[in-house]
């Protein structure tokens, strides 16, 4: 029973799941990192994920190509990002509460559309395993790292890509400046609102892809509220990672490891009450956040709307 957990093949299985399960966290948290580095807290990630998950799934369910599904998710994600930007950047509503509103909107609308357009739980054939030639044959490591579907690889590629955009491009410099001192950026002719619209659209697109990675990549079904609050954990991971892409990667892996462990504990019928197993990732979130109180890298203007004047 419990010793089954410690066999080599089980460990490889757990690590493989861990790498795989980090996918939605990575997309969503990296997206949220863009927004937060520019000073906007978007708590609506989970709602955007649900919308992305639904549209990605629906397009594929209607018989289109998987990548068309991803594009549909991106499109709806950008629109949700624009909505968030309009409410909290242009209209300057409080970022926290408007994010909750966006979440509830996404949750409700995706459920409604699901009931009207599909009606019952259906499956699709999502992205297939795409073992990378040669690398996938390495014993152990090969299966853990190089035997996944395209969306999983894409999620990991987003880590250096996001780092590059934030640290090596003019847009990235503007994002960092706007998140820390929007007044200063404004006096140099940087459009604070423009930058925030951009990051929220990027964040929306990535959150929607995170959702699609569930509905057409990992689980290949759509259900109401299928994210189960995953988007909120993604927001927490940004704090955990101190607003750095590498930190977010670490957080996502740690988190998905606990998740993978939990799944395997259940799969192997180890006599731990399933409620306790399911609770583990959430307890983990609380513990981790409690211990990441140091906020050195925190964008100083996070969650503050910017208005010229004064």
């Amino acid at each position: 029973m419990i010793d089954e957990l410690f066999t080599i093949s089980t460990l490889i299985g757990i690590l493989h799941s861990c790498v795989r399960l980090a996918t939605p966290y990575l997309f969503a948290s990296l997206g949220e990192t863009f927004g937060q580095r520019s000073g906007v807290l978007n708590l609506g990630v989970d709602g955007i994920m649900l919308m992305g998950a639904f549209f990605g799934f629906y397009v594929v369910f209607e018989g289109h190509n998987l990548w068309v599904g991803v594009l549909a998710a991106i499109a709806i994600g950008v629109m949700m990002g624009l909505l968030k930007a309009f409410v909290s950047v242009t209209m300057q509503s409080l970022q926290g509460i408007s994010g909750i509103g966006l979440y509830l909107f996404g949750l409700g609308l995706s459920s409604l559309l699901f009931k009207t357009l599909i009606g019952s739980v259906e499956g699709v054939s999502g992205f297939r395993q795409l073992p990378i030639p040669l690398l996938a044959d390495i014993p152990g490591i090969g299966h853990i790292l190089f035997n996944h579907n395209a969306l999983v690889y894409l999620a990991y590629l987003m880590v250096p890509a996001s780092w590059f955009v934030i640290n090596r491009t003019t847009l990235g410099l503007k994002i960092r400046a706007v998140g820390h001192n929007p007044e200063a950026a404004d006096t140099l002719g940087v459009s604070v609102n423009g930058v925030r619209y951009t990051t929220l659209m990027i964040g929306g697109a990535l959150a929607a892809v995170a959702g699609a990675s569930l509905s057409i990549g990992l689980q290949n079904v759509f259900q109401e509220n299928m994210t189960n609050g995953l988007g909120f954990i993604a927001v927490a991971l940004v704090y955990f990672g101190s607003w750095r892409t590498v930190g977010v990667l670490g957080g996502a892996l740690l988190f998905s490891l606990v998740n993978a462990l939990q799944l395997w504990v259940q799969a192997l019928d180890i006599p731990v009450p399933s409620e306790v197993a399911v609770m583990m990732p959430y307890i983990m979130t609380i513990v981790v956040l409690a211990f990441t109180a140091r906020q050195i890298q925190r964008p100083a203007a996070l969650a503050r709307s910017y208005e010229r004047g004064e």
Partner: peptide
């Protein structure tokens, strides 16, 4: 009007 987390050069380059 400076962003203290950025370097001198980054502050100068900002917006250019």
């Amino acid at each position: 009007m400076l962003v203290d987390t950025l370097t001198v050069t980054e502050n100068v380059a900002l917006g250019l």
